[in-house]
Design a protein around this nucleic acid. Structure first.
Lengths: 231, 231
DNA sequence: ATCTGCCAGATTGCATGCAATCGACCAGGT
DNA sequence: ACCTGGTCGATTGCATGCAATCTGGCAGAT
């Protein structure tokens, strides 16, 4: 699939660049040169430049005037801040989802849960994570709140681009997370909003703590000052 | 102040357009034609087009391929969704602010509070609202969480552009809001995070309910489908 | 040896030209 | 009278050219 398949070149470039960042193809700190990227994507500078501006507004890139763009990494502070906000969003999502989710929504989340559980048993990290993210996203979606959804998705995308976070889970943490997911499912099925909200918040705190712990030693190429480009 | 004073034309255009939308100079549903706006701002199409893309990503505009951009209005659903998210964010902000705010932060918020109170007594709506927004923003800032800050600011900006929301407060609602603000200040000074969090959430719910109530009758020019342009 | 000033290459910021697309209007047919 | 098909004007999407800015290296002075 090339960039040209989209309705507009800009859209295609956006999709492609976001994927490249999320997949680590463009690592944190990597410079993004206009002409170079133009050749790679086979588009002219105009749509590419427009895409860079949008991605900068999403805090995925940093634009340094006259000096090009670089992929924004996450500082420890960023991760901490983001988990705090995600905790707030998911807690609210849990409460609302219990009120508003359709039975079909819950059934689907349940199905995802057991799929994930199977991967957990087989210690298949990659698909486990994919389903994990899907479950959390589905809970948020089940609130029917589009604003909540998009804010959550934006944060999730930014965190995902720090791929190294996913490595080196301790077995204990994994077991604990899986246990928590069991409680999450129970609360959702019981439509106990207060309980689900609390569990999700605790789950996020645990996740955040684990991530931050593993963020101490392996400090990857870190770059990017906090200068607000266009937010 | 013209657009040219900024470091880059794009930045200038962004600031200017955001202000025009927030001030209602560009009303909801109004089309934004490139050439027209270029003349108005005295820039060429390139920086203007880049700005439009960014504003679309911020959900302030909607880009319709080959048909130009229009200013996005807020549906009742949008407002409801946004207040739900703001409630979550402010609740978290209240809790964190009590832990982390410096005494100077609190003193400043206190000063803003009494200024606002003075305007309340004189029934000066406009400055009252300005200070109201400033107080809430300051509480969020006091958490030191940049992610929380920017997410909150983005929502506040989108809501602010629906200016009609500010009109026709009932006296009762105003009194109640002022009372609540007194409690907010008390809790903050006492650094009682749990209490502040709860009060802020309730305050937001009240605000949201009041806004939605007044949103029933005066349905202004509404426009914009929910098609995600580039989010 | 270190520092300062300058120059050249590279890269971005902006302006503009061209082609493709969309919407409105009008003519013709049923 | 209503509907269908086609054309024209307007507007956007994209490509490219030019000037301004920044980086790195080098020469010369202290």
């Amino acid at each position: 699939m090339t960039v040209q398949d989209s309705t507009t070149l800009l859209d295609g470039v956006l999709v492609r660049l976001r994927a490249m960042i999320a997949d680590g193809e463009l690592a944190a700190g990597a410079p993004v040169r206009e002409r170079e990227m133009c050749e790679l994507l086979s588009v002219s500078r105009t749509p590419l430049r427009e895409a860079l501006k949008v991605l900068a507004a999403e805090r995925l890139l940093e634009l340094r005037p006259n000096r090009g763009a670089i992929v924004l990494g996450l500082t420890e502070r960023d991760v901490r801040d983001m988990f705090e906000v995600m905790e707030a969003l998911e807690a609210t999502a849990g409460r609302l989802a219990c009120e508003r989710a359709s039975d079909a929504d819950i059934a689907e989340i349940q199905a995802l849960h057991w799929q994930m559980h199977a991967h957990y048993l087989r210690a298949e990290l990659e698909p486990y994570f994919r389903l994990n993210q899907a479950i959390h996203a589905r809970i948020v979606d089940a609130t029917g709140n589009a604003v909540l959804q998009s804010n959550y998705a934006a944060l999730a995308a930014r965190i995902r681009n720090a791929r190294y976070l996913a490595n080196r889970w301790s077995r204990e943490r994994w077991d604990e997370a899986m246990r928590e997911h069991g409680l999450i499912l129970d609360a959702l099925i019981a439509r106990d909003g207060a309980r689900l909200s609390e569990i999700l918040a605790g789950h996020l705190r645990g996740k955040g703590a684990a991530v931050l712990e593993h963020l101490q030693a392996p400090i990857p190429a870190e770059a990017g000052t906090r200068s607000a480009a266009a937010a």
